[in-house]
């Protein structure tokens, strides 16, 4: 399975279908992103024969753009609506990647999304893992989608 292609297609489809926005993928890297400033991060755990996680890290300003588009109303601060919207975004991307993995014979169960936000924070989970981090840009902002499987 081409993981980069799976992440790219899933994210682009969700933005086109549910947000009427174009999300352009950038160059994927294997290094993990750990520290975040003034951001919102949503994480979906994947449990099965292997463990994995899908995370989306979004600067607060971009999270407001995405949530405003989801809800079709102007959202001006990171509140429960923003956390819920970004959590649901991660849930949909994880669901699409899960479907691709299932086609390859890898069965997973998805967790309910967990969302963290703040002025400065670090995320450190599945430290011994392989995966990719793919940046995306939308009009007015950018965000990062990470997918990792435990070694």
């Amino acid at each position: 399975m081409d993981l980069n292609k799976s992440i790219s297609q899933a994210t682009q489809e969700i933005f086109q279908t549910m947000l009427m926005m174009e999300a352009s993928p950038g160059q994927a890297v294997t290094e993990r992103a750990k520290g975040f400033v003034d951001s919102v991060s949503a994480i979906v755990g994947m449990a099965g024969a292997n463990k994995g996680m899908l995370a989306i890290h979004i600067p607060a300003s971009t999270a407001l753009i995405i949530t405003s588009s989801f809800l079709m109303m102007e959202v001006t601060e990171v509140d429960d609506d923003v956390k819920d919207a970004i959590g649901e975004l991660a849930n949909m991307v994880a669901g699409s990647i899960k479907a691709d993995l299932t086609e390859q014979g890898q069965e997973f169960k998805l967790s309910i999304p967990s969302v963290v936000c703040g002025a400065e924070y670090e995320i450190d989970c599945l430290t011994d893992s392989d995966g990719v981090s793919m940046p995306f840009s939308i009009e007015g902002g950018e965000f990062l989608v990470e997918f990792h499987l435990q070694k």
Binding site: M72, D84, N91
Partner: peptide
């Protein structure tokens, strides 16, 4: 749906 966002999207 446990997501308030998704309930609003489905309604729309």
């Amino acid at each position: 749906d446990d997501s308030n966002t998704m309930r609003k999207i489905v309604t729309r």
